[in-house]
Nucleic acid binder design. Structure first.
Lengths: 160, 160
DNA sequence: CCATACTTGTTGACACGTCAATCATAGGAG
DNA sequence: CTCCTATGATTGACGTGTCAACAAGTATGG
């Protein structure tokens, strides 16, 4: 009779699966970031922000909307926008209608950076991830990720 | 006739798979780190170092051996050991026989921290990862991770 | 209208990682 | 023995992420 879930100690196999999974996904993340940096001189965070801004009407977004869209804490976004502003990728303007607000605005330089990075980025995703896996493995990876995502969301919704 | 691998643009499905995979694994990583921090006041890096030292003869290791064992750059390890030393988890001693060398030595406090953290850590792995997946999904996750790991290692071995 | 609470955004402190530079020692080649 | 190079480890600079504290504007109940 099987023990109740969450009670028994981890088996060797479970622990090994965890280890290879967590370590490899970390490596993948690092490898992708390295490609982006080398190819286009931007970070994954930069890319995410640039992409979101580029798709927004007027290429500008309220900070809080942007933060929601990419699921970042506001303080993280604030720090990141500060760095991006220093490099000329975006500017910040006061929001119309709410004097608390700030809008991030994509600059020409920011658009250029995004354009420059897109193709190499997709190429890297293919080379590091998609091409490594069979179609079945890719589907399995997605299934696992979606299951984990929903599981984590469920935990967060309840007591964290 | 299918195009050669690595040539065609990413399909919608491939891109979606990538996104959910990379974002969810990042969330998983963050969630695990949060548990470890809350439960035991240590980081995943601390845990890794403490575990490796605790299993070493004399509970001490040359810096470079430790770095190899956990696959960290030496400078990363040096920074991390500095922080751990400041908190009393380890000490550093000159290595016998090679005056360049440094040994990291686990303190009593470090052993305690590891002991305190082990059970909650395994519990978190189960709760956040293992219990979220069916046995089939767990096996698939491992298979995907191993395939990716080998793929990344192959790329690194060639031209990076 | 005003006290209060909520929202928006920034800041400072600190942990973490990478990179390039540095420095001391070890270990040959001559 | 003396260079010269390789190795072991540290450091400083900087980008990144979290947390807690804060400032300032907005909204709401009285």
């Amino acid at each position: 009779m099987p023990q109740r879930k969450g009670r028994a100690a981890l088996t060797r196999t479970e622990l090994d699966s965890w280890r290879v999974f967590i370590e490899t996904t970390e490596d993948l993340r690092t490898a992708l970031a390295g490609r982006l940096q080398t190819d286009s001189g931007i970070s994954p965070g930069d890319y995410r922000v640039l992409l979101e801004l580029s798709e927004a009407p007027g290429r500008r977004l309220r900070s809080s909307h942007l933060a929601d869209a990419i699921c970042w804490e506001r303080s993280r976004l604030s720090h990141h926008l500060g760095r991006m502003e220093k490099r000329g990728l975006i500017t910040r303007e006061a929001a119309a209608g709410d004097n608390r607000g700030a809008e991030a605005v994509l600059t020409e330089e920011g658009r250029d950076a995004l354009r420059r990075s897109s193709v190499p980025h997709f190429h890297a995703i293919r080379e590091l991830f998609v091409d490594a896996l069979t179609p079945e493995q890719l589907a399995a990876a997605r299934d696992v990720a979606e299951t984990l995502r929903d599981h984590l969301a469920g935990l967060k919704e309840r007591g964290e």
